[in-house]
Computed example of a mutant assay.
Amino acid sequence: MTYPNTQETVNVIKDLVSIPSPSGNTNEVITFVEQFLAKSNIETKRNRKGGLIATLPGKDDSQHRMLTAHVDTLGAMVKEIKPSGRLKLDLIGGFKYNSIEGEYCEIETAAGEKYSGTILMHQTSVHVYKDAGKAERNQANVEVRIDEKVHSADDVRERGIEVGDFVSFDPRVKVLPNGYIKSRHLDDKASVGILLQLMKQVQEDKLELPYTTHFLISNNEEIGYGGNSNITPETVEYLAVDMGAMGDGQATDEYTVSICAKDASGPYNYELRKKLVELAKQHDIGYKIDMYPYYGSDASAAIRSGNDIVHGLIGPGIDSSHAFERTHMDSIDNTTKLLYHYLFAEM
């Protein structure tokens, strides 16, 4: 038994987080995933929503499994071009303006041109604005300063920037010698990297899975409906691989795999949860059971859309989710090991 190499997984995660992919603009990162899997001769197909499905045949084709992780991330769109030449934003996904204040960003036009910018409070300069620290961080006050000589809305439009253009945030990915990984968008590109490495290992080692298994790389999870379709009638178990949320009252940490018992959608399947815990115990895998009060996953979206499936949720623990995220290689490693044993376990 050989697990995927954790350092190689981290390298894939670095590549993934470095590709801008706010929900609604994910073609580039999906193409990266396609090409990655093609190198291992894994066939894929895109669904009409732009997500990607890979299928590995199993000994039993009458019952299927499905695993999913999402490549779409938080981001923004240009809401308004101000007379000053700065941009007002509209947010994509569930986060707050304070979590992006001071962040470098990239504006992509419909023609594919890309411009650098910085997300700032209008009242940033303490030498000018008395209320710089007290002003509310909201849509009215937060704006994008474009790194171009623009002084009016016309100057901005001359560069092809318009309402509806996508704005992505600089991930600032950094892997430290002590195993910590800091970056935006570890939710959920850490999980995508893990699944890619697992598929590669199974394929290249010519391992036979007990059940035909589908891997959905979804692209609309942050807006609620990434994994709610393309589920075969034979699918019995559906496991979302997404980050474990950390904070006051939470059991999840940055070193173990988080197994979700319940989120805002309600409890996950009890029998599947118990099976995941038993696998972790059998193979000496560090884990935590947790609940996420303000969270929903592709698995909960699949249940809400009426699929008759057993659903579960696990993932690496991520600190400061939807902001300045961090995890550790230990969490990547434990999540990988649990998924490996789950793929070869009996239903």
Rank of each mutant, 00 (worst) to 15 (best):
residue 269 N to F: 04
residue 277 V to I: 15
residue 265 S to P: 05
residue 298 D to Y: 04
residue 274 K to I: 10
residue 223 I to H: 07
residue 262 K to W: 00
residue 261 A to S: 14
residue 276 L to I: 09
residue 243 M to L: 12
residue 284 D to T: 15
residue 261 A to E: 13
residue 287 Y to P: 03
residue 262 K to H: 10
residue 273 R to A: 12
residue 285 I to H: 01
residue 311 H to K: 10
residue 273 R to W: 03
residue 223 I to M: 07
residue 283 H to Q: 11
residue 229 S to P: 00
residue 270 Y to C: 06
residue 280 A to L: 06
residue 228 N to S: 11
residue 253 D to Y: 09
residue 254 E to L: 14
residue 211 Y to N: 09
residue 311 H to A: 14
residue 288 K to A: 03
residue 228 N to P: 04
residue 222 E to F: 13
residue 210 P to I: 03
residue 207 L to I: 10
residue 308 D to V: 00
residue 264 A to I: 01
residue 209 L to R: 07
residue 242 D to Q: 08
residue 235 T to I: 05
residue 295 Y to P: 06
residue 211 Y to M: 03
residue 269 N to K: 08
residue 238 Y to K: 00
residue 236 V to R: 08
residue 295 Y to G: 00
residue 230 N to H: 13
residue 287 Y to S: 05
residue 271 E to A: 13
residue 271 E to G: 09
residue 214 H to Q: 10
residue 232 T to L: 13
residue 288 K to D: 03
residue 228 N to Q: 13
residue 296 G to L: 00
residue 213 T to W: 07
residue 278 E to L: 14
residue 258 S to E: 12
residue 258 S to T: 15
residue 264 A to Y: 14
residue 245 A to S: 14
residue 289 I to T: 14
residue 239 L to A: 07
residue 276 L to C: 04
residue 234 E to I: 11
residue 275 K to S: 12
residue 260 C to Q: 05
residue 262 K to P: 00
residue 293 P to G: 06
residue 277 V to H: 01
residue 252 T to W: 06
residue 210 P to Q: 02
residue 224 G to Q: 08
residue 246 M to T: 11
residue 283 H to Y: 15
residue 235 T to W: 00
residue 283 H to T: 01
residue 221 E to N: 10
residue 281 K to P: 05
residue 304 R to K: 12
residue 287 Y to G: 01
residue 308 D to Y: 01
residue 227 G to Y: 00
residue 281 K to I: 12
residue 258 S to L: 01
residue 265 S to D: 07
residue 284 D to S: 12
residue 210 P to K: 04
residue 248 D to M: 07
residue 307 N to I: 06
residue 212 T to R: 01
residue 247 G to I: 12
residue 217 I to T: 01
residue 219 N to S: 07
residue 264 A to M: 06
residue 221 E to W: 03
residue 260 C to R: 11
residue 301 A to P: 05
residue 290 D to Q: 02
residue 233 P to E: 07
residue 296 G to S: 15
residue 249 G to D: 09
residue 257 V to Y: 01
residue 236 V to E: 12
residue 237 E to F: 03
residue 279 L to K: 01
residue 218 S to F: 00
residue 257 V to M: 02
residue 288 K to H: 13
residue 241 V to Y: 04
residue 267 P to A: 15
residue 244 G to C: 09
residue 224 G to F: 02
residue 282 Q to G: 03
residue 308 D to R: 05
residue 280 A to K: 12
residue 296 G to C: 09
residue 265 S to H: 13
residue 296 G to D: 09
residue 250 Q to W: 11
residue 214 H to G: 00
residue 217 I to M: 10
residue 208 E to I: 10
residue 295 Y to H: 08
residue 229 S to N: 11
residue 261 A to Y: 10
residue 294 Y to V: 15
residue 300 S to Y: 02
residue 269 N to M: 07
residue 300 S to L: 06
residue 235 T to H: 07
residue 298 D to A: 07
residue 284 D to W: 11
residue 243 M to Q: 11
residue 279 L to V: 02
residue 228 N to R: 05
residue 290 D to G: 09
residue 248 D to Q: 08
residue 244 G to M: 09
residue 267 P to Y: 12
residue 252 T to A: 15
residue 222 E to M: 05
residue 232 T to N: 13
residue 207 L to R: 12
residue 218 S to G: 03
residue 275 K to G: 03
residue 293 P to I: 09
residue 230 N to R: 09
residue 228 N to L: 09
residue 278 E to H: 14
residue 265 S to W: 02
residue 213 T to D: 08
residue 273 R to S: 14
residue 249 G to V: 08
residue 266 G to T: 09
residue 274 K to E: 15
residue 254 E to R: 12
residue 253 D to T: 01
residue 237 E to K: 10
residue 225 Y to C: 05
residue 257 V to A: 02
residue 301 A to T: 05
